[in-house]
Amino acid sequence: MLLALALLSAIAPLAIDMYLPGLPALGDDLGTSTQSVQLTLTTFMAGLGIGQLVVGPLSDGWGRRKLLLAGAATFAVSGALCALAPSAEVLIGARLLQGLSGGAAIVLARAVIADRATGETAAKLFSVMMIIGGVAPVVAPLLGGALLDPVGWRGIFWVLTGAGVVMVVGILTLIPETLPPERRHGGGLAALAHNMRYVLGNRRYVGYALTFMFGFGALFSYISASPFVIQEVLGLSPGQFSVVFGVNSIGIVAGSIVNTRLIGRFRARQLLTFGVAMLLVAGLALLAEVTVGGAHTVVVLPLLFAVTTSIGFVMGNATALGQSQVSEAAGTGSALMGAGQFGLAAVISPLVGGSAAQMATGIVACAVIAMAALQLLGRPEEQSTPESTAARSA
């Protein structure tokens, strides 16, 4: 079940990273501008955010499984639409639909874990899910680069269609309903408004959610700009870019593995603070290198690896700590974190462009805000009773 949930969460990096090596070819084939090509990424990220914001609260009243099935089936259909798109406008619309359905998969996978576990157990499960799901961003650019010549960018979207079909099969065979009727809050706007007030009224949830969102924002500053920075600024080939991107994705997996092993020896809050501090230091060093040092490949690439490795300490811990604060509305809590995560990514994508300095500035700005949000929560020993109680009961 955990493997199936990880694969559901991995669908977003698959749909993002697999077609990155083909962005220049996509623009040439459809006869469109670089800005229009980047819109296919921006609309996908916007769809991920909106999909989570809608489906997460609905699942608190309707249950998780049937919405998971609907989202997976829609993802498969939208992949086929992307593969057949005759113009950039059609592709942008299909990518929006693909993002909406992918958002449903992500938010519900997190909600299923929140239904089953809390506290340190949840932190471990979220970290393990990141390890399993972390294989996707490692494999995706390599697979995309390998597929680009023989099947083209359209063939890559057919592969994503197949991934959607696999998702449907996995849900049918491995994932049961985890929210029984007696724990559901009912539907309607009144219930939705109540859950939103409950979640947003929890100061600690908001703090952890902001840390989570801007940690991902730093990561997406790298993801969005790296195809242009690594190939055009550093001068690496598309194949070399795929390798670099894969190695940096391994950094996320490595950070998650270490984080999982350290949970129990250290509190999740301590590990989260370490991750954000590492992200900030690496981002500042990267900004100094690309603005003053001359953007040398041998310096930039290790710093990017440090940036991605720090994310392995941020995402799982921030998710578990935030969700533990709002366990009575796990779907809504997951939805707001996810909507903020990918909504912020959609804003960041056009801002960082293809400049190394803009990429590094985006990483630093997001790291500073993540650290500020974490510090506003107060000292670790001042954490609220519900969080510590959840960890003990788990």
Score class of each variant (00 low, 15 high):
257 I>R: 13
213 M>T: 09
254 A>I: 04
172 L>S: 14
250 I>W: 02
233 V>P: 01
223 I>R: 05
207 G>C: 00
176 P>F: 03
251 G>P: 01
208 Y>E: 07
179 L>Q: 01
248 N>W: 05
242 S>K: 15
194 H>F: 03
195 N>K: 11
199 V>P: 06
232 E>A: 08
207 G>D: 07
228 F>P: 03
250 I>S: 13
180 P>R: 07
221 S>I: 00
202 N>G: 09
180 P>D: 11
175 I>D: 12
199 V>G: 10
228 F>S: 08
220 F>D: 15
255 G>M: 07
217 G>H: 04
180 P>S: 11
181 P>R: 14
179 L>K: 08
204 R>Q: 13
192 L>I: 14
256 S>H: 04
216 F>S: 13
178 T>K: 01
209 A>K: 05
222 Y>G: 14
173 T>P: 07
222 Y>Q: 02
232 E>D: 15
253 V>Q: 05
192 L>Y: 14
240 Q>D: 08
181 P>Y: 05
196 M>A: 12
247 V>N: 06
210 L>H: 13
240 Q>N: 06
169 V>H: 13
212 F>K: 08
230 I>N: 04
207 G>Y: 02
247 V>F: 03
242 S>E: 14
220 F>R: 08
194 H>Q: 12
220 F>Q: 15
172 L>N: 14
229 V>K: 05
161 T>C: 12
233 V>W: 02
242 S>T: 14
206 V>N: 11
234 L>I: 10
175 I>S: 09
191 A>K: 00
258 V>C: 12
197 R>G: 03
252 I>P: 12
184 R>S: 00
253 V>T: 09
235 G>Y: 12
195 N>C: 08
209 A>H: 00
236 L>E: 02
183 R>I: 05
231 Q>P: 02
204 R>W: 09
223 I>L: 08
164 G>P: 09
174 L>P: 10
180 P>V: 15
220 F>N: 15
214 F>N: 03
182 E>V: 15
187 G>H: 07
172 L>K: 10
225 A>Q: 07
202 N>A: 10
200 L>W: 04
195 N>D: 02
247 V>L: 09
193 A>F: 10
183 R>E: 06
233 V>D: 06
246 G>R: 04
179 L>N: 14
255 G>T: 07
180 P>K: 13
232 E>G: 06
166 V>K: 10
219 L>D: 05
173 T>S: 13
215 G>Y: 06
178 T>V: 05
205 Y>H: 13
248 N>A: 06
210 L>C: 14
214 F>S: 03
250 I>V: 10
187 G>P: 01
201 G>Q: 04
